[in-house]
Nucleic acid binder design. Structure first.
Lengths: 249, 249
DNA sequence: CAGTGGTCTAGACCACTCC
DNA sequence: GAGTGGTCTAGACCACTGT
């Protein structure tokens, strides 16, 4: 049975997050000392530090020896779940997500796909081409590649299903790690038809490789967004550097 | 005096990183148990867990209750310093960074600049326009805005200086937190002239806001890359979600 | 100098995975 | 049931910031 309760440090983090976004400490203001927070919440300093590490990673507070933590920003931070699922992301913004599956193909994995999904020669993959909308306006074309056993599930879904991530989770497929590569590409004939733009128009591209809790790749996907519809934001600190810049290959 | 020694958990993390990139555990292989590592390195389990948290954030290993950690990837991860400085980034890739300052302007801060740099009305800012090259080929146009006291330093630098970050650090200006926004934009006349492209061509845009250890904003910058020269990568996990997707505003 | 966060220890109990 | 990582405690010492 999964542990339904939430860890104490997550509750503390949530309360502090709330306090920060309510402006209880002000932008550029200071948080109470760790020892004070430990007393307030009735937990040990270690637990408070775990909570603060979460806020630190989200870029909400600084931390350095000698002074109290300073509030960096009050912006709401997206959950991992919202960064993985287009549907949940859109709903969290109050937008109406939509879309349709344009094409589904099953065939033997090509070399690149085998490498990305860590498959053996001859293994099958399932390719899904979808167009996705916000308030009925097309904003993105998604090309996903799944290993066979996941593809079976996706292929069996209602073609009108808005989300694939949610039903996949209901089948026990969990996404826990995602590696993203963001750059720019140009619309091909499919993109142009689906996004109502011209062939050769520039699109913002996000390529993703997702793995499950065991470290097994479960999805490799390429999303192409119409310019002006989305931007990606990342917080980076000397404590945790998640972002990298790469030369295009 | 600054602490010249490195924390134990950072040394352990560095050794584990080395082992992973050497393939000592294989891709998809398993790390030794925390207790075993603690014994190997002669430290407590808590210290080992701090080290592993670093690798977790870099997306090098998974972690879940009940089983040993699994190696996710062996790719070298960029340091924070390399993500902040174009010069250091280029050198770490074995490329020769270059560039020149095209224009420097000092004037009163406009409302957007005041907000981003948290300045008061009437405060001055320093704007620097630079073109940056890799092996003498222009790849990026950088427009930076600095508050007055930092601008003084930048304006006083050798116009031929390749890096601004390094001399700024020598003047005691430290960057510790950066918030990035990545999207797409189109070349204006300046961009076109400096990057040798046409007005209206699509460019990959990165906007950055950097703060120092006290949480004070020290730089607000907009970089525009020629397509096909760079891509940005981010690792995201349910343990630490650094990436967000935003609607363009 | 007092107060703060950074590092480290030694132990405990628990939820979970896998055999 | 044995082994593993997740959570939490209670303490210690130190480096650093500010007054």
């Amino acid at each position: 049975m999964a542990d339904g309760r939430q860890a104490m440090y997550r509750k503390v983090a949530a309360e502090l997050r709330q306090g920060i976004s309510d402006g209880a400490y002000g932008s550029g203001g200071r948080l109470p000392a760790e020892s004070a927070l430990a007393q307030t919440y009735g937990v040990s300093r270690g637990t408070i530090r775990q909570a603060l590490a979460l806020l630190r990673a989200d870029g909400l507070v600084t931390s350095r020896r000698g002074t109290r933590r300073v509030v960096l920003g009050t912006a709401r931070v997206q959950t991992f779940s919202e960064t993985v699922s287009f549907t949940r992301w859109a709903r969290s913004l109050g937008e109406e997500p939509g879309g349709r599956v344009v094409d589904v193909v099953r065939r033997a994995a090509e070399p690149v796909e085998r490498e990305k999904l860590r498959l053996a020669e001859g293994d099958e993959v399932c390719l899904v081409l979808r167009v996705r909308t916000l308030s009925a306006v097309p904003v993105m074309v998604e090309r996903s590649v799944y290993p066979r056993h996941i593809g079976e599930i996706v292929a069996g879904l209602d073609p009108a299903a808005v989300s694939h991530t949610v039903p996949l989770e209901e089948h026990g497929v969990r996404f826990t790690d995602v590696h993203h590569t963001i750059d720019l590409t140009y619309a091909d004939a499919d993109d142009a038809a689906l996004l109502d733009c011209r062939v050769g128009d520039a699109l913002l591209r996000e390529r993703r490789r997702s793995t499950d809790p065991t470290g097994t790749p479960v999805e490799w996907s390429e999303d192409r967004y119409l310019p002006g519809t989305v931007a990606f934001t990342v917080h980076n600190s000397s404590a945790a550097a998640a972002l990298s810049r790469r030369t295009a290959s």
